[in-house]
Design a protein around this nucleic acid. Structure first.
Lengths: 293, 293
DNA sequence: TGACATGATGAAAAAAACTCATAGTGTTAC
DNA sequence: GTAACACTATGAGTTTTTTTCATCATGTCA
């Protein structure tokens, strides 16, 4: 009568890993590391006393036992899922409306929404973007994220992140005009940002360089346009680190001379006081702070 | 395609709790505390957004949703169990033979074997009991537990527990002959233990009492017999704390004046050196040390 | 009404899961 | 043939989850 069951959480991992026959892919799907998947599979294999995957350096393949087991486990998980689903549908999902600056939404937020949804499946995110102040009394928005000057104290605004700007350029562009010292920067088109007119000026002043080259042929409205422009080899620009981090990793952009600029801006989370206590607002706030860490 | 599953370990708890409609019973069956069960159920309920049990102070009853869910979950767990079982049967079970003193086996070990089996289902325990030394070369025994004098240093023996003896008597017997001071003890039959002839003598000497009453009408071979005798109101006796703890809790025995005696004996775990590295031996050793803690 | 059994709950401890950093190993491209 | 790469394994350390412990609250039953 007493059951002898395998570690149940390992089954969920097993199913994903077995379906993709890849621990790395499974890890990504489950929002954990490959290491975690590897260990859960090993745990399950040890429990069952059976090898479920054949390892061949870098490639894992289901064994016959593994294949059999997958079908059993999938069946069981199907039942659990179906049986649980009808309860979920009765839960009404909460809608959390966030309003973020266009740069954030385009490059940063969209790649992280999936994770938020994974962690909080009962919250539906409505994301819209704008740059101006929100009239909380008229708007549905629960949370807004804004880039504001650091010194402008706003009691409702919580600092998420101090802005750190990185100098960026495309690798191809850098080959055309090599950069060996800061002075070489003057040979480039400097992509400017419309609402930060002093940015380049201040930068060159800091390095005591001639500001002749500063006037760029065009200005962008938002950081993500600066990135697009840089990717098209149109010049060098300054963009926040978190927006270009992945592109630098992938070598689609380069941070020449690893030049950084601590701007006087920060990213702030703004919530109207009467919504601060709402669970959905708290959960989002905690999630984004952790994600930014 | 991506699954939305409840916390799977909570399902195992839920099934047991639902079948017995009691968190306490479920806790016992699962070898955890009632608190742990309560929390796992709450977790599951929160996840599903559904109340699975109706609480009525001290009594839990499945709701309709809970009943439905139980049948779903049982079905799923059946599939997992059946699908996993065929692997277990291929694992050959290890046999671990332990030899313990009769007192330990009768009163202590047998009530704990179930827990060991729960934690290590792949090990089959063979318990036999004896009091003499074991010829490791001739015997199948993997581990023996012996009560030995503390000063007798034995390199193969690991101290599990220093023996602490408690004075015991039955409640009925104590009503007949009330004990208000140590001197009253002299009015009792002192149940003696054959292989500890000095026990009572030393005790009365320690309290500087007359030893007249010390000669008891009979001696027991083992501690569990002392307990039996005390339960039958035949006198007072000294027995190890761990053997009478439960009986004292249940008020079937009483520890008058809370008199304790730190004997010079200890319980030792003895393993032949060539078996010390075996996993089954290590697992048992760690389990028993933790259980005794 | 008081002893009792049961469930709930907050804080602390223990266990499990996960991450990080890095090693090892086939595969692929030059 | 070898260097770069993509993938899994693993030990140490950290984080998260689960469990325990101690205690409270509540309904039951004599």
């Amino acid at each position: 009568m007493k059951r002898h069951l395998p570690p149940l959480n390992a089954l969920r991992v097993f199913e994903v890993a077995a379906k993709s026959e890849s621990f790395s892919k499974a890890a990504e799907a489950l929002f954990v590391t490959q290491s975690a998947v590897s260990k859960q599979i090993r745990l399950l294999e040890k429990h069952l006393g059976t090898v479920l995957f054949e390892r061949n350096g870098g490639v894992v393949t289901l064994t016959n036992e593994g294949r059999q087991y997958l079908s059993v486990i999938s069946q069981a998980l199907d039942i659990v899922e179906t049986g649980s689903e009808k309860f979920y549908s009765h839960q009404e999902k909460e809608i959390l409306t966030i309003n973020i600056t266009p740069s954030l939404s385009a490059l940063w937020m969209f790649s992280r929404v999936e994770e938020f949804h994974h962690l909080h499946p009962d919250i539906v995110l409505h994301i819209n973007s704008a740059d101006d102040d929100i009239d909380w009394s008229k708007s549905q928005v629960d949370i807004s994220i804004r880039c504001l000057p650091r010194d402008k104290k706003n009691t409702d605004a919580e600092l998420l992140l101090a802005e750190k700007l990185l100098l960026i350029a495309s690798p191809q562009h850098l080959e055309e005009i090599p950069i060996n010292s800061v002075a070489d920067l003057q040979r480039y088109q400097c992509i400017s940002l419309n609402n930060r007119p002093h940015l380049w000026h201040d930068f060159f002043e800091q390095y005591q360089l001639d500001k002749t080259g500063v006037v760029s042929s065009f200005g962008c409205e938002h950081f993500y346009m600066v990135i697009q422009a840089a990717l098209k080899h149109l010049g060098i620009g300054f963009v926040p680190d978190f927006l270009c981090h992945d592109l630098i990793q992938e070598q689609k952009l380069i941070n020449p001379l690893t030049i950084e600029l601590n701007s006087d801006y920060g990213y702030y989370l703004v919530t109207p006081p009467h919504k601060k206590e709402q669970e959905k607002v708290i959960r989002f706030t905690e999630w984004i702070k952790k994600t930014l860490y």
